[in-house]
Design a protein around this nucleic acid. Structure first.
Lengths: 148, 148
DNA sequence: GTTTATGCAAATCATTTGCATACGT
DNA sequence: ACGTATGCAAATGATTTGCATAAAC
């Protein structure tokens, strides 16, 4: 996880202005490891600065993705993309029912494509997503079946 | 890849009616391994049956996903989900610039989470996505830098 | 002082919903 | 005949865009 100072210095290096809104959004992202959606970030933002617009949240998140310090995570089934400040190589475990997303901090260095498989692509990284049902939803599904 | 007959029999087994629209959508999916978007399927559909509505395409794709014969594929950056008839275990190689998506037919059976890592999740499958830049976009990016 | 960011409102794009009609079984 | 699927139009929801004002450098 990046520190707030690291993120701020990335902004400075790229000649982006450090506004109170951006600083707040960065603080939220650093503190929130739960892969928040744009709206979840926005809701946290307006509890502190009620006048910040969604546009600013979108702008800032897009800039951070372009700078490579934020990663966009896909969550099919739940509307809207999610964001992850953890730019280090890590992987995901997704509950296909409630869409809870856990980080898997282990690396899988053995995952390499052969040159033939890579088809000339210059490969930058890889991401593993495990799909399953979390303990909560296992219970919910079990009791659902009982009631049939 | 499933054959058209296999898909039709899945529909029959689930008491879904075989309408001309559904049959056409299935034919298109079987023939198109390029992970089409909903809209790309729709565009192909209306070249043959111009009156088919987007609603019907959405309905059919959702039903096929529910039946497990279609898989929804993530593609961040390009608007709209994409669909993959190849229900077998396989992985993806995505160009982060043009969003071309290739199938990697190799399996990675060594990818297993320890019980501790799985946190009680009942894991059903895993999916590896390699991110990189395709040969086309490598050229485009290189000539872009020259012109600076 | 210059450049960039913000916030608003309107526009856009993908997807969903409600419902009357048409069709497959 | 029955029940489901279709197609339309309208609703929704997320994201993007244009632009005048405000703020950071």
């Amino acid at each position: 996880m990046e520190s707030l100072e690291t993120l701020l210095s990335v902004l400075r290096q790229n000649h982006l202005k450090i506004t109170p809104q951006r600083r707040l959004i960065l603080e939220i992202l650093v503190d929130d490891a739960s892969h928040p959606t744009v709206d979840q970030v926005y809701q946290q933002v307006i509890t502190v600065m009620p006048n910040v617009s969604r546009t600013t949240v979108y702008n800032t998140l897009h800039e951070l993705v372009a700078l490579g310090v934020l990663i966009e995570v896909q969550d099919m089934g739940a509307g809207g993309g999610r964001y992850d400040t953890n730019a280090s190589q890590h992987h995901h475990l997704l509950c296909t029912h409630c869409h809870t997303l856990l980080d898997i901090e282990r690396d899988f260095p053995e995952l390499e494509l052969t040159p033939v498989e890579a088809c000339g692509y210059r490969i930058a990284r890889h991401q593993v997503t495990f799909y399953g049902v979390c303990p909560c939803c296992q219970q919910a599904l079990a009791s659902q079946e009982e009631s049939i």
